[in-house]
Nucleic acid binder design. Structure first.
Lengths: 350, 350
DNA sequence: TATAGCACCGGAACCAGTTCCGGAACTTCC
DNA sequence: GGAAGTTCCGGAACTGGTTCCGGTGCTATA
């Protein structure tokens, strides 16, 4: 609309291939779409014509009638009310291994179905534009990573009738399928482990409390400690980045120097926390045991390597993709929920 | 093609809006495309009808005639012959701040032109599929990040006539525009700085030697040292990941314990190198000065914060986007090259 | 050998927009 | 008051595919 665009030599059309092969347009179309009712000899002729002309189907024309594009979007959403946080949005996305795992898992199953995956970061300034992109029909459906409770994106997509699958339980109930990990169970694994290591003076670095994941892991940790008869732990909130984990740990030991066990709501923050503890002269795990969450590549890059709660992120993303494909096949399917079990991976930080 | 898809209630069409507004289809189209020759009163009527019907233009129909989709792809390519490296491709992409900066810079200028940006990781197994995606016309053009000398992607896109801009000088000459930083100048800044700090026993951690960036920075460093009359430095090759920087630094000091200055081909590796040096009992910058390359967020996360050669990645990506837009406007424009100047950012590691 | 049945192909309708072109209605000017 | 010129709208052609429907030519069967 905005950009005028001059003409290029136009690519060959179905008609030209048909003429070259001496058949009708319909037949060429059948060959391209692998319709079985085509004489093998004719098929060969047509295929040669396609080669010779260098024909490539025009997506717009095709999807105008089929109403499909054979591609889906992985949208990473940031809600509009997180200004300062949003400034570093893209840096966060391209710094947290989580998103790569999601992509890998989804790619895997989509690929085998011949569906393309495109990634769209949707920070606040792009919000409307992304919404427009999605409803215009560039893609058949969307995998939505929305981590903030107040994010309107899930609701909007649901309302617009865009087939969508979420990566976690939405902050507000929304009629969309989602995949999640059993957060309380995972956190309990971490808490039980710290206790079993003899740790009693526990603390936690929580995620942002406006994210279900941040909020859920914190309250689950409190619950777990209560079950063990332990007091409510000191809490410092981070934002799931390594730097915030570092700062949080510093704050924590300044305030509570005798801490001997630390549960951190994700591995990236845990990696930072370990570093801060060490710089403060604490040995990990000698003086304090640290347990992370995710089992991302950050857990392996930490020194010592992190004990952590493993989320099967790749499998979860694969399930998201499968749910999406199913949703595309049956549009009136009711939303489903799939919950995965976390496991504890014990390494050297505890 | 593969997924059969059942019918949803079809969205309103231009025709229905036209009926609702009591005008012709052509007029509604004019209103939507902001054609000035429409009576203001009629325009208001049509706009109301659009609101009421909840009309959204059908992308396929529109781009069938306009030959535009108003979206471009940012493709991150991995060449087919890097098996083991490819296994961690997505983890690398979503762990290196570089890609976030590219995205941010490109978004910025595309957004103001109303162009959508989608990100497509193209590791070897997806290679053909991505190529198909691009030539089918899902997007108007592509910003290609191709870092390996042997990558066939740039050549293929050029041959297919897809309007493309590269993020660096291609390994083989290709008739495409690209943006790059003056690598030798940047490396010279680093070398001169180390020398000016009194360092004489210099070494370097290089990037992969099948990447122009890796190769170029290494040879430029050798040249710079030669200019200072210093001997050829010990070299260990990494793969631009933090872990590889760590391993490389370990290898380096095992072999050459008296090193007092280290140039590392990117910040991520430099961050790892600093950590390895510290764990080996070296003080940075007391015992050894370290200089990185990029000035990415990794430089700030290192302890001490890294002295580094700044690439204006965001500006470079913005320029890529501008070159692409220009290429879309004039398809027969000849390829251009834009080279940016690096600067030295002195922090605490040197 | 006539006929039913089947495999396969072509014509044409259709998808939902954009844009060219002609013409109606209204001004403006003489 | 009529001619010329504007302004703005509608009809229709066009974009490049898919798919329905009907028909042709062949084979199998009685």
């Amino acid at each position: 609309m905005t950009t005028p665009r001059a003409e290029l030599p136009r690519p060959p059309t179905l008609d030209e291939v048909a003429v070259a092969a001496g058949v009708s347009r319909a037949t060429v179309s059948r060959v391209i779409n692998d319709v079985p009712t085509v004489d093998p000899r004719l098929r060969a002729v047509v295929e040669r014509a396609i080669q010779e002309t260098g024909y490539v189907p025009n997506l717009a024309a095709r999807s105008l009638v089929t109403r499909r594009t054979d591609s889906v979007a992985l949208v990473i959403s940031e809600p509009p009310n997180h200004r300062e946080y949003a400034a570093t949005f893209l840096n966060r996305v391209f710094t947290d291994p989580y998103f790569g795992r999601i992509t890998a898992g989804a790619q895997e199953v989509l690929r085998s179905d011949g569906i393309h995956l495109v990634i769209i970061p949707a920070d606040p300034p792009a919000h409307d534009q992304v919404l427009r992109y999605l409803r215009q029909g560039h893609v058949d459906g969307v995998l939505l990573i929305s981590s903030h409770a107040a994010d309107p994106f899930p609701g909007q997509l649901a309302e617009m009738g865009v087939v969508t699958v979420l990566s976690a339980r939405p902050g507000r109930p929304v009629p969309l399928s989602y995949v999640d990990v059993d957060q309380p169970a995972g956190v309990a694994l971490a808490a039980d482990h710290l206790v079993s290591r003899g740790r009693r003076r526990l603390a936690t670095i929580a995620g942002p409390q406006d994210m279900p994941a941040g909020q859920g892991r914190l309250s689950a940790f409190r619950d777990a400690l209560a079950r063990h008869g332990l007091p409510a732990p000191p809490v410092v909130e981070g934002d799931f980045t390594r730097a915030s984990g570092e700062a949080a740990a510093r704050a924590l030991i300044a305030e509570h120097p005798r801490i001997d066990g630390l549960f951190v709501a994700n591995d990236l923050m845990a990696e930072g926390a370990v570093r801060a503890l060490q710089e403060a002269g604490r040995d990990v795990p000698g003086d304090v045991s640290v347990v992370g969450f995710d089992d991302s590549s950050a857990a392996l890059e930490a020194h010592p390597q992190l004990t952590t709660v493993r989320q099967p992120v790749e499998e979860m993303a694969a399930e998201m993709a499968r749910l999406l494909l199913a949703g595309l096949r049956e549009p009136h399917r009711s939303p489903r929920t799939v919950i995965f079990n976390p496991t504890l991976v014990v390494r050297d930080s505890s």
